[in-house]
């Protein structure tokens, strides 16, 4: 289900796309995450949550990137930007 109330990346369910709003990190880490594609304004979707782990794989700026949940939790999403991605993998 599209969960529009999810406001940070770690709560984005698989198969849903949203737009990044801000990154809450110290400057150097913030720049690095932006260089890897997590840029305010970019659409991001969660592709899958990795087994057993606290990792999830995101599709952002054309690449697949694995992030830990605690890192994802500090990336906020634009409110009500979440939309079900028709061709996403929900399984």
């Amino acid at each position: 289900m599209p969960s529009t109330e999810s406001d940070s990346l770690d709560r984005l369910p698989p198969g849903v796309t949203a737009v990044i709003a801000a990154l809450d990190f110290e400057e150097a880490d913030r720049v690095r995450l932006m260089e890897l594609g997590f840029i305010p304004g970019s659409s991001v979707s969660c592709q899958r949550v990795v087994p057993l782990g606290d990792l999830a794989i995101f599709q952002v700026e054309g690449t697949q990137v694995a992030l830990r949940k605690d890192t994802a939790a500090r990336i906020t999403l634009q409110p009500s930007s979440a939309a079900r991605n028709p061709d996403a993998d929900s399984g």
């Binding site: 995450l33 890897l36 690449t63 697949q64 694995a66 992030l67 830990r68 890192t71 500090r74």
Partner: peptide, 8 residues
């Protein structure tokens, strides 16, 4: 720990 990011 630094944020962990791995490009696939």
């Amino acid at each position: 720990p630094a944020p962990f990011v791995l490009q696939l």
